[in-house]
Every structure is written in C-alpha cells, then in structure tokens.
Nucleic acid binder design. Structure first.
Lengths: 240, 240
DNA sequence: GGGACGCTTCGGCGCCGGCCGAAGCGTCAG
DNA sequence: CTGACGCTTCGGCCGGCGCCGAAGCGTCCC
C-alpha cells in the first residue's frame, strides 16, 4: 500500500491544475460558459501573455479546457459540464468569509449586485434569479427537492409546454442541484437547467448585461415567468 | 478585475490542499469514513511521521479534516460529508486509465477484487454492492434516476418499513448520486445512503472484511435483500 | 521511575513551478 | 509588402513547499 499510489498521484495532479491563483481565476472566469481568448484571460488574471500561455497549455493537456484556434486567436472554454460542475463544487466549498469582501468602488459594487441578481453558471441560470425559478418550480410540484433533486412527471410535461425541449437520452442527469454561491442554496442545473437557460436567452426572456456573466430579466420574461410559473412581481430584484 | 481576486485565491488554496501526493493519499484513505491515527497515515503514505504531521496540520487548518486527540494519539477523519463528496467527485474525475494498473501481487489483486465487490464510500455503500442496491431500488420505483436523483414517496415509505430511520430534517439532501469509481455509474449517497449503510452494518446484513473499506454481504443480508428488494442470487459477486 | 512510543517542532536541503522579458512565428490589415 | 498584433518558446530568477533527521514533549506501560 505504501508504494506509489496512482490514484493519489492522479488526484493530486488534477487538484494541482486548479491549485494556482492564475489558473483558478481562469477557470472561474470561464464558468460563464463562453470561450475566451488567451489575451483576455491574461488581462483578466493580471499576468503576462507568455505566462498565461503556459497555464493554458497545462489546463488543456489536463483535460480541463477545450481549445479552438481561429486565425491568430486561441479560444478556450471549459471542456464539458463535468468540469464546470467540479469547479463550481470546489468554489462553493471555499468559506464565504473569504469571498465576501467590501467592494472597492461604486462600479464594482453595482457589478456585484447585478451578478447577485442573475447570472449564468456555466450553462444554467444562477443568482437570485436562478433560485427564484428553482423555488417556483418546486412550489408548483414540478421539481422535488425534499427527497433528493429530480423533476416530477408534471415537471417533465411542463418543460414540454414551456417550449423548452429536453433531451432525456443524454448521459447527463436531467436535473441536479448546484449550490449557488451568492444565495447559498441550490438552484436547478443539469440538462433541464441548461435547456431552460438556453431557451430564456433565445426567446429574450433574459438578456446578458455587461460583458460578463450577469443576466437580467426582460419585460417579456416577466410575463412568461408569471404565466408559466406564477411568479408575481420581480423577486429577483429583491436583495437577499 | 485584474487585481487580487479573493475568490480565485480561495479556490487555489483549497485545491492546493489536495494537490499533493501525500495529502491526496491521506484523503483517499480517509474516504473509508473512519478515523486514522497520524502514524497509520504516515505508514500508508510512505513518509516520515514528521512530514505527515505537517500535512495533517494544514488539512485540519484548511477545514478538510477534523481531529480528535486521545492520549498520545491524534485521530483524524474527514471533516464532514461535504468534504467527502468533494474528494469523491475529484477522484471520479481522474481518468480511469491512470487508476487501472495491473495488480503487482496476488494479495493486491484479491484485495482489489474485494473492494470492487463491495466497500464503504465515506458513509454509504459502494462498489458492485452499492450499484446493485441502487439499481434494485430504482427498478422497484423507490428511487428515480431518470429525471434527476430522488427517492419517491414509495421509497421514503420503504425505508421506514425496512427499519432504516430517515431524518428528513437534516440539511443534507436525502438522496444524491455518487459516481462509483469502479462501476463508473452512480450509487445512492446522501442521508438515505448513509442510513442504509449504517443499518446494514448494525444489523449484520454486511460486515467489514480486512482492515480497510471492503464490505461483504452475510447470509442474513442475502435474505433481507431478497425479501425487501427482490434481489435474487448474489449479483455483487459477479464481475462487471 | 524508567523506557518505549507517538507526535511535533525546527533547521536545512533540494526541487519544482510561477513569473517575466526577449525573441520568434504565424496571421491579419492596410 | 509591411507593420501591427496575438500567441508561443526559451532562459533565468526567485520563492515556496515537501522531504528528512534530530531533538523535544507528552503519554502510556511496566
């Protein structure tokens, strides 16, 4: 037992990919589900392009990132939903006290507030908006969280009538809980969460605001959420 | 954005705790859910006691381990189920190719086979046994995995009649899937999984074999699983 | 009390890994 | 064609971290 444990070595290597400030910042940034260029990430992380290039090499080699070369640009994104979930889970584990720090400027404060109201979490909706939708689904008996985390039969039907196609064939679970790091409660993730988010953005129920992950509900979205889920008012604007 | 991202620093620090061969080996060993002494872990990991002592200090300070001092012994165990899940999730992510290596000896081969048949995964049952039970629950409509991962109402009732007390009040989800790293399929975890495992060991349906995490089904367990879940034969002995 | 034992602290060693700037390569625009 | 641009490779620097053995401390057993 004491000699060369490949399991441990693999685990350490995987964690080692994340165990660096700069790489961690990249992974968190990429949690918006979109593809970033190497230069954008370098500026975001505050290191030289040469430094970041090496980091990307390691992340890609380790299977955490997928890359796509276009002309002189190198686009990278999270390899798949599993990786996104892993990063989310780890990030959710870091003590809230570490993350909560007073904003340094008005701009930063308002950006933070926008993220707290609504944002994408890889491929699904999070923040106050994400939990409001998840709670509404639960209240209507479409989702059950009391004995686990799964859609009910009525829930599957609801997704159909809402015009949100669900692919039951995929290897991904249809529904799973994802711990929201601003709300500290679970919101809907998995194939259903991704489908709902995609539909909401396509149909204009929500729009991306700013350059990042923040998302806001449109007037049409308000109507739809009211009609389909009985959500009255604008609970996603209320501060926790 | 480019200056001092506490979120990233926290994530990197957390991952850094796991990103070491020796500490990873400890965490994996502690996944058996029991408390180990510092010396046992040092021998297991193949490093000097002094080295391991420092590792334990960091893991405890980082909140991954809980410690209990008894006389001249220092017992440590995983801090809670969240940490266990985190380690499991990470371990499940390391490529199977890395882990699968031919056994070096007959003893090692038979130990591996015993683990593949049945073992504890922190506080619930895993391996072939874990997935067999999970599948039986699913087949009987007690657990649904098609739209997520949750007990059904019939499932909650079943746990009651099976003499397995469930505490619905806890903050832990009643049921969640945990990816089995030998079966590569999910098995039942969460409060229900833990309760089932506890009951199975208490009632002698299963017993621990050897010194580690391996678990075997007793004749009485066979009868119970047949009566309560309609499991015929000994599917947990069949090699995948 | 004495000795064995388990754990911890400390100093020192060596290595690995992150960082940068300089230089080079391919791509795109004018 | 030429220059700007994005990315990569390389060399070199530096700090941090994991390792050990020696020494010390507390506990347990005889």
């Amino acid at each position: 037992m004491s000699t060369e444990n490949p399991q441990a070595a693999g685990l350490a290597a995987l964690a080692g990919l994340i165990a660096d400030r700069t790489r961690a910042a990249c992974l968190l940034a990429l949690l918006d589900g979109r593809a970033w260029t190497a230069g954008e990430l370098a500026r975001h992380a505050g290191v030289a392009p040469s430094t970041l290039s090496e980091h990307l090499g390691r992340l890609v080699a380790g299977g955490l990132l997928a890359e796509e070369r276009q002309g002189r640009h190198r686009y990278v994104r999270l390899a798949d939903a599993r990786v996104a979930q892993l990063v989310e889970d780890l990030a959710a584990q870091v003590p809230a006290a570490v993350v909560r720090r007073p904003p340094r400027s008005l701009r930063e404060a308002s950006a933070g507030a926008a993220l707290a109201r609504g944002r994408t979490c890889y491929d699904h909706l999070a923040g106050r908006l994400g939990t409001v939708l998840t709670d509404a689904l639960t209240r209507r008996g479409l989702l059950r969280q009391d004995t686990g985390f799964a859609l009910t039969d009525a829930g599957v039907e609801w997704f159909g009538t809402a015009g949100v196609p669900l692919d039951p064939g995929g290897r991904r679970p249809l529904a799973r809980g994802c711990l929201d790091w601003t709300e500290r409660r679970p919101h809907l993730a998995g194939a259903a969460g991704a489908a709902l988010c995609r539909r909401a953005l396509e149909a204009g129920w929500c729009v991306r605001v700013g350059s990042g992950r923040a998302v806001a509900v449109t007037p049409s979205g308000e109507r739809v959420f009211s009609d389909l889920l009985g959500i009255s008012g604008r609970p996603w604007l209320e501060t926790g």
